[in-house]
Design a protein around this nucleic acid. Structure first.
Lengths: 223, 223
DNA sequence: AGAAAATCTTGACACTCGCCAAGCTTCAAT
DNA sequence: ATTGAAGCTTGGCGAGTGTCAAGATTTTCT
C-alpha cells in the first residue's frame, strides 16, 4: 500500500491532461463551426479522437463545452498583462495595447467569434451562464488593469468604472470582429486601433484635448 | 381577363401577410429557444401552424430565419424616433432615451438576446451575414440620430463618430442584457441608465463637467 | 355549380444527433 | 507472466431533424 506522491498524482495528471487535450480539440472545432453546428462526431472527425471517448472524460456534451469555456479563460485572461508590464509611458502602453488588439483579431478570430457565440448562448442555456459570467468578469478585470495602468502613467483619473470601460472596449472590439469576418479585406483593424486610441484618453480626465498631440497616423478626425 | 388591381394585389398581399405571420411565430420561438435549439417542428408546436407549411412559403429553414431577421428590423429600427421627436431639451432627450432603453430590456428581452445570438451566428453562417449587417447599420443610424439630436439640443459637438457611438452604447446595452438575464433581481437596469447618462455627455464636447448638474438619482460616482 | 388554382396536412425519407453498452486494447502492478 | 484496472473503439439505439411528395382541403374564378 506504499503509494508515493508521484504514483498518486500521475494518473490524475494524465486524466486532466487528456481532458485538456479533448477540450483543445473541441475548442478548435467550436471555433470553426460555432455552438449550433458543433457535434461530437464532427469534432472527432477533425481530430485524433473517436466520437465515443468524450463520454469517458465528460458527463455529456454540455459538460465538455463548459470545460472548454473554463479552459479558454486561462489562455486569454493574461493576454494583455505583458503590454502592461513592458510599457512605461501612457502613449507607449496605449500603442502596445491597440497593437495587441489587432494581433488577436487577426490571429485568433475563430476563438473570439466563438466567445461571442457562447456568451449569447449563455442567455438560452443556463448551464453556460456561470462559466461565461466568470470569464466576462475576468475580461473586465483585464481591461481594467490596462485602464488603471494607463491612468497611472498619464497621471490622470479615470472617468469611467470597470464595467463601463469593459463594455465600451468590448463593444468596439466586437464591431471590429464582425467587420473583419464579413469583409477581411476592409480596414477594420486600423479603424479599431484608431477608435481605441480615441476612446481610452476620452475615458480619462484632462486628456480630451491631448488627442492631436499623439501625431502619427491616428490623428484623423473621427467624423 | 379583366384583372383589377384589387384582384391582382390581394393574392400577393395574402402571400406576404402569411409569410409575416409565419415569421412572427418563428421569431417568438427563436426568442425562446435561440438559434441552436430552434426547429421547425418546435415552432409548429408553439403556434397554429403545421410543420410542413413553412416549405410552401420559404425555400428552407435558413430562408425563413433570414426573413425573420429582416422582419425584425422593421419593428425595432424606429423604436427611438419618438423620443427624438418629443424631446426639446438635451437632458429631457437623454432621460427619455434611457427610459426607453430600460423598457425594451424589460419588455423584449427575448428579442434582444435573439438579436445578439443571430449576430454571432452570422459569423458562422454566411447566409445570415448580409441581413445582420444591414440591421447593425440601421441600429447604428438610429443611435446616431439620437446622438446628433442630443448634440444639437446641447449645443455641443460630438467627439465620436457613428460607429463609435453605436459600438459603445451597444456594448453597454449588451452587458445590461446579460446581467438582466443572469440575475433578473439585480439592479442592472438602473446601472444601464446611469451608465448611458454618463457616457452620452462624455461623447460630446464641453459636457464632461455637466454630469453633477443633473441631480436626481443618477449622480452616484461611477466607481 | 363546377373547374382550376392555391393552400395546407400528413406521413415518410434519409440523415444526424447524444448517449451508452459490450468488447477490445493498453498498461501497470504483483 | 498473469491479473486486473484503466482507457478506448465500435456499433447501435431511440429520438429528433429538414425536406419533400402525395393527397386532402379550401378558395377563387368562369
Amino acid at each position: 500500500m506504499a503509494i508515493t506522491t508521484r504514483e498518486r498524482r500521475n494518473p490524475v495528471d494524465k486524466h486532466d491532461a487528456r481532458r485538456r487535450a479533448l477540450a483543445e480539440s473541441a475548442l478548435r472545432t467550436l471555433g470553426e463551426l460555432g455552438y449550433a453546428k458543433f457535434s461530437l462526431r464532427e469534432m472527432a472527425n477533425h481530430s485524433e479522437f473517436t466520437h465515443g471517448v468524450v463520454h469517458y472524460y465528460f458527463a455529456d456534451k454540455l459538460d465538455l463545452i463548459v470545460y472548454c469555456v473554463q479552459h479558454y479563460k486561462a489562455t486569454c485572461i493574461t493576454r494583455y498583462d505583458s503590454v502592461i508590464d513592458e510599457s512605461f509611458a501612457a502613449e507607449e502602453l496605449l500603442r502596445a495595447f491597440v497593437d495587441k488588439l489587432g494581433e488577436t483579431i487577426e490571429d485568433e478570430a475563430p476563438m473570439h467569434r466563438l466567445w461571442y457565440d457562447l456568451r449569447s448562448q449563455s442567455m438560452f442555456e443556463p448551464g453556460l451562464a456561470d462559466a461565461v459570467s466568470h470569464i466576462d468578469e475576468s475580461l473586465a478585470e483585464m481591461v481594467w488593469r490596462v485602464m488603471a495602468r494607463y491612468g497611472e502613467l498619464a497621471g490622470a483619473q479615470l472617468v469611467v468604472g470597470k464595467p463601463e470601460a469593459y463594455a465600451i472596449l468590448d463593444g468596439i472590439f466586437q464591431q471590429a470582429l464582425l467587420g473583419h469576418q464579413r469583409d477581411p479585406q476592409g480596414d477594420h483593424l486600423v479603424q479599431l486601433k484608431r477608435q481605441v486610441m480615441l476612446l481610452v484618453p476620452l475615458m480619462t480626465m484632462g486628456l480630451q484635448s491631448g488627442l492631436a498631440t499623439e501625431g502619427g497616423s491616428a490623428d484623423t478626425p473621427p467624423f
